[in-house]
Design a protein around this nucleic acid. Sequence first.
DNA 1: CTAAAAACTGACTTATTAGTAAGTAATCGC
DNA 2: GCGATTACTTACTAATAAGTCAGTTTTTAG
Lengths: 190, 190
Amino acid sequence: MAVKTRDTKEAILQLGAALIQEVGYNAFSYADIAKKLNIKNAAVHYHFPNKADLYDGIVDIHIQTYTLISQELALAGIPAMKKLEVIINRYSRLVDCDHICIIGAISSDYKTLPENVRAKVETLVELVLTLVEKTLLEGKKRGEFSFAGSARSRTLLIMTNLSAGVQLARITGKKDFETIRKSILRELIA
Amino acid sequence: MAVKTRDTKEAILQLGAALIQEVGYNAFSYADIAKKLNIKNAAVHYHFPNKADLYDGIVDIHIQTYTLISQELALAGIPAMKKLEVIINRYSRLVDCDHICIIGAISSDYKTLPENVRAKVETLVELVLTLVEKTLLEGKKRGEFSFAGSARSRTLLIMTNLSAGVQLARITGKKDFETIRKSILRELIA
DNA sequence: CTAAAAACTGACTTATTAGTAAGTAATCGC
DNA sequence: GCGATTACTTACTAATAAGTCAGTTTTTAG
């Protein structure tokens, strides 16, 4: 049985992911990571030869996470509202720890990312958008939700509300995100 | 008459503002600015002793711009829809040149900004939100717009749609911003 | 128990970063 | 036209950045 005794690589990924959502890709260094994990600079380079490799790995983690969430929420019997709340609650937790959402963070860094990472980012974004779109469609079919326009356009509206909502909350305060959260839900069940 | 013969300071501010919305505060250096403007590193430091001073100046510029827009749009006789379009068109232009909006960019950099700049950023954000809120209220009173909830909450929804819309457009393409733009307008006149 | 593979450390390099100080050139008020 | 102010340049520094490589420790598989 392969029980992991060392999890340095995992720790680097977790810390890197948090830093991207806290200060952004270009505001932290390998030295910052090494210091916090009590390892040496070269140890970080051993697992991720360059910073683009690290970014790539972090995007992978988020893809894995959303793939898992998609599978869990694919189960029948769960109300569409519960499914949507799983997503929305993730954003509420971001507000609590003053992080911005990964997609918002990536879009800011986007112009400084190499092409291979950009392509992977597209995969992540489509994964999230598709998950929400499916949930909205299902909710509408079941009579839980009602909305005008396509499920895709409604998805774009809701996800931009959430993404920029957590960003705005950093500046104007958490109450504004709460307002947005309630508005999203109110519109959907009106 | 004070005709300016040198406008280096203005050029630095304009370039810095563009860079913040293109690659982010932590992804460009004074050397980048000096190179592009054909001046020396120290000339940038002469006008803006440190990078926080530069950021401060750039936020000031945006405050000035939105103050001017607010004054121009305060004139009676202009339909609320025309006023809102002035704002929305600014975001469409951002999509065209692949920049993200200043508020979105700032919120990403936020944790790396000193306190005095953060305070000024709050002023900018409230200025923009107030402008849109007034426009929505006016449009509702005139019968141009109809929307549920308060003008403030509707402002938050629209501005987050626009802000994250331009960010998303970088990754998934300009068509998604166009979808968002149309949805905002459709909901408002429904 | 041992050899090989994996996971590091130590000691670097090279480039770039923000920032400074002293001197020079351009412009302005008078 | 002249002295003062403004706007720079030249020439630095000290710190930090990403990244490399040779050697050492740790872990794992047989």
